[in-house]
Write a protein that binds this DNA or RNA. Structure first.
Lengths: 400, 400
DNA sequence: TATAGTATTGAATCCGAGC
DNA sequence: CGCTCGGATTCAATACTAT
């Protein structure tokens, strides 16, 4: 059974797993989109709550049957993570209360991400929910410490890595098989709100399977609630992310899926696990935020769109002239005015800007700026801070 | 009824509100902490599921009765926001489905915040949930736009895109292969996951209202789902944050609370026109909270100390001349320059200011300002925003 | 009025150019 | 050759349009 992907309904496969042997269960059940559609269309016709309940009840009954079976195979120290979205999360959790008990609820994990879309009639859905329940109060829990802000430095979240005798990269453990955490500072204990980027459409990690989850999400779950050589079960394994993560973290896995294609895909992935070389994950979100505080605070006073990924332009003004943009740059600490102006000019011309505005924050230390060094395309204006300083200075001079 | 805080059970007060007149409801019902604790201790001894259900059912029945009454007073375009935490959110949402209908669900808003706590054998709870339901599908919704992600590149904001013959999305070009610009964009629609700082725990202790919510949270909700002069109802208004936010945003309010102290506190907070009840606010950065956002953001760029409780002066500059202060005021929306200048002059003279600086944010609508109306003691300088607008205008004129 | 097809869009990647 | 910078691309969730 172990370290295999099984094809079939998990209800059948689960009965072949010895009771009390699984240490961690993660499940990402199907959402029954068609059913919900019919539910919706039926609702639009009848608008009767009981009708909806009937349909939702079917879905919940299907899940409940499988969760009861899952509970059987769970060890005494085991934890279960149920992944759902806003459509049915509340009914799922009521059912989980029934199966595991209200007091066995541990956490409502929010997986928050940013996503593309153009929703206009509603708030953009940008999170999914993972319910965490235990079988008993003797569950495994490894506290993970994070840096102050979420997803800034994933290396600190992850454990230390080393090479084993076969040359494979594995997570380091001490003699007692306890994980070794990375770094001397423990940091802040992980909260129940996880800012993990959505698997990007361009990511190599993508397999083409629709509901594929990021490896980091599963790695975090597995680290949190299992130890090396523990058995991790995913009864709806889909593209196999859970099993890949378990392998990478030296856990053993049992994967199950009803789709033959999913089983094939999972098997292939475990043989050749590809981890996306995501610079966002590697360097953290903060590394993309290039604008210094003093620049950002000036931009905050203006009707502009800040630009982080351009070294010459800090922002684009909300007003356009003849369809052409007005680009803005704020002088940096220690930056000579002419250097800032040339940066801005180069970048602004590429974007076909109609106006390029440089906000001067300070006088050059050596007073080397001559205005003939400033390109004529660039308009220089003073920051309020600078103007006030000038007023104070001129006041001092008139007084003396 | 309107613009008042009422004392009593909302079930009674609601019956006095005419049906279909309320445009927005926010409620932050009590969590029955004692009940839950007895529930929990009882559970620890008996661990009986039915016991818990009975108790939870009482709580839900209490809420359901009130939500049915709330639905009655809601206008056709109204929206309701129900604030809850992980303890009962699922049961509350099931009940909301029953009262408003599964299809009237709009969003599950996650309010995420960071806070300190000692790590137990658990993830640190750091979010609360707000369910958003409408009465009909003709609900009011004003999209709020936010900044683009730091990882977004400029070209996407600037360039027009289209689909080529293969259905791929590509950047549009004209016949000469030059890129076509897109014109101004609005930004990213607000998502359902809100990262808003929690109130200072010390402030909680002082007020004795542990559930006090940040103003920003309520302001966002009110902006999102109501228009000026609409009626905002909070049936469990506590310290009155909802009513304060409604007042600040020119909405009308109805507040209800069973606690006499809460009603008194709410009335006091609303009676104070600006957010200056220092006993309710943390010190330091929060002192900016008395000031409108547009004033606050400008002061943030300057080396100044913000001033509270002074209608003429917004801040005092860090530099002093001959031991005398330099006082600063930022022109308000819709405020005539001469009015602002006179305010500043009066207040500044009392403080023996050596310089009084008024930052002009906009031209007077009727161009009635003559500079001889500005007191000579006051120095007027333009905000960067205004200077840029002038540059754009003069550019337009030289072109034509 | 229900359904199918089309347009729009932002996040974060991949990848090429330049140093 | 390895790095950084920035331009191009993918794709799912929406709204919108046509049938």
């Amino acid at each position: 059974m172990i370290d295999q992907i099984h094809h079939g309904d998990c209800l059948d496969i689960l009965s072949q797993i010895p009771n009390g042997t699984v240490n961690l269960v993660y499940l990402d059940p199907p959402f029954f989109t068609q059913k919900k559609q019919t539910l919706k269309s039926r609702k639009l016709v009848t608008y009767e709550f009981d009708d909806k309940w009937d349909s939702m009840a079917d879905y919940i009954a299907y899940l409940k049957l499988r969760l009861i079976a899952i509970k059987e195979v769970m060890a005494d120290n085991a934890t279960v993570f149920v992944h759902c979205d806003r459509n049915a999360s509340h009914y799922i959790r009521v059912m989980l209360d029934e199966v595991f008990g209200y007091d066995r609820f541990l956490s409502e994990i929010i997986w928050a991400y940013r996503r593309w879309s153009n929703s206009r009639k509603n708030l953009l859905p940008a999170h999914q929910t993972i319910y965490m329940y235990s079988k008993s109060d003797r569950y495994t829990f490894n506290t993970i410490y994070t840096d102050y802000s979420a997803s800034t430095n994933v290396d600190q979240i992850l454990q230390r890595r080393e090479r084993n005798k076969h040359g494979k990269t594995v997570y380091a453990t001490d003699d007692d098989n306890n994980v070794i955490l990375n770094g001397p500072k423990k940091g802040v204990p992980l909260s129940d709100t996880w800012d993990i980027p959505y698997l990007n459409p361009k990511a190599k990690e993508r397999t083409g399977y629709p509901t594929q989850k990021p490896l980091l999400l599963l790695e975090r779950i597995i680290q949190l609630s299992s130890n090396p050589d523990n058995i991790v079960l995913d009864p709806f394994c889909g593209s196999g992310t859970t099993c890949v993560a378990a392998t990478l973290l030296n856990r053993r896995y049992i994967g199950i899926d009803t789709s033959h294609d999913a089983v094939e895909l999972s098997r292939a992935r475990i043989g050749n696990p590809i981890r996306s070389d995501s610079s966002l994950l590697k360097k953290g979100r903060a590394s993309y935020e290039n604008l210094p505080d003093e620049v950002q605070s000036i931009l905050n006073t203006l009707p502009v769109k800040p630009v982080q990924r351009n070294s010459g332009i800090d922002a684009i003004h909300d007003r356009f002239v003849d369809g052409r943009p007005i680009v803005i740059r704020v002088q940096r600490d220690g930056e000579r005015l002419e250097d800032g102006a040339n940066h801005l000019k180069q970048a602004g011309e590429k974007k076909n800007a109609i106006l390029m505005i440089l906000i001067r924050r300070h006088q050059d230390v050596q007073q080397t700026t001559f205005f003939n060094l400033i390109p004529p395309e660039v308009t220089v204006i003073d920051s309020i801070d600078g103007i006030i300083d000038d007023i104070i200075e001129s006041h001092l001079h008139t007084e003396s």
